[in-house]
Amino acid sequence: MTNGNATLVVKDLRKKIGKKEIIKGLSFELKKGEVFGFLGPNGAGKTTTIRMLVGLVKPTSGQILLCGYDLHREFSKAVRQIGCIVENPELYPYLTGWENLEHFVRMVPDIPKNRIKEVVELVGLQNRIHDRVSTYSLGMRQRLGIAQALLGKPKILILDEPTNGLDPVGIREMREFIRFLAEKEGLTVLVSSHLLSEIQLMCDRVAIMAKGEIIRIDTVEYLLAEQERVIWKVEPLEKAKALLEEETVIIGEEDGTLITHYDAEKVSLWNEKLVKAGIKVSEIHTKLPTLEDLFIELTEGETID
């Protein structure tokens, strides 16, 4: 399955804590230039997975390849390929933004000094970069976090909740920035979020996690299209419901409407049946679900155990 374009490859990744297996065999691949979303309810194992990808947590078994380098065996070379923010971008508050970046540049042997200036301009922090981080707003810290992640010109960017704590304008800027990095700079970006609308707007592909497993992995369009729904505005409701239930599954009921799955061949037949039975059909329309509907459906309103 591995192809030349894959920058991040995960094979049968597992993590046990004590006797409990919290990550149960994940496998996926990310391509160059794509934004990949990681979705899951709290406790699904997103953060643990991301921490394994950046080398903070050691997997019990399985393999992680970053641009072809095995994270376990060639740690330094593999980690050199990534930039990351894990949870909040926590930087040293008693140093200035610039000093923070200098600190991290000194840890990597091959970053030229003028790279700091480049990334500062890229994230638009020129005016405040020589102030202490303790005086920064959350949005500015987030930008400095991104700047820090981009210092080493990584091929893969791993962002845990990148829009956390940002205002609506900040969220939009961050989204556009991430799309820009993927499309223009050719980075692979892995984003985790609990904000489904964010993922929907930002990502090319999505993996949905629950209970330590990936339950779906697909492009956003495909995932949504498959779940297209038909909304029926009918009267009387009960009789129509009984008739439709003979043919298909009613997946929802909302103020005077019934919701069923979409089936291009059958929708007109169902309509005919309703009309013949004397039901007043005032409206039939199709609707793409939001990722949120899908998410709740797939994870079945998951609770953590």
């Binding site: 080398g55 903070l56 330094s76 991290f104 080493g152």
Partner: peptide
């Protein structure tokens, strides 16, 4: 987390 995700053992 930032310190340990550098290419340094």
């Amino acid at each position: 987390k930032l310190l340990l995700t550098r290419p340094v053992k």
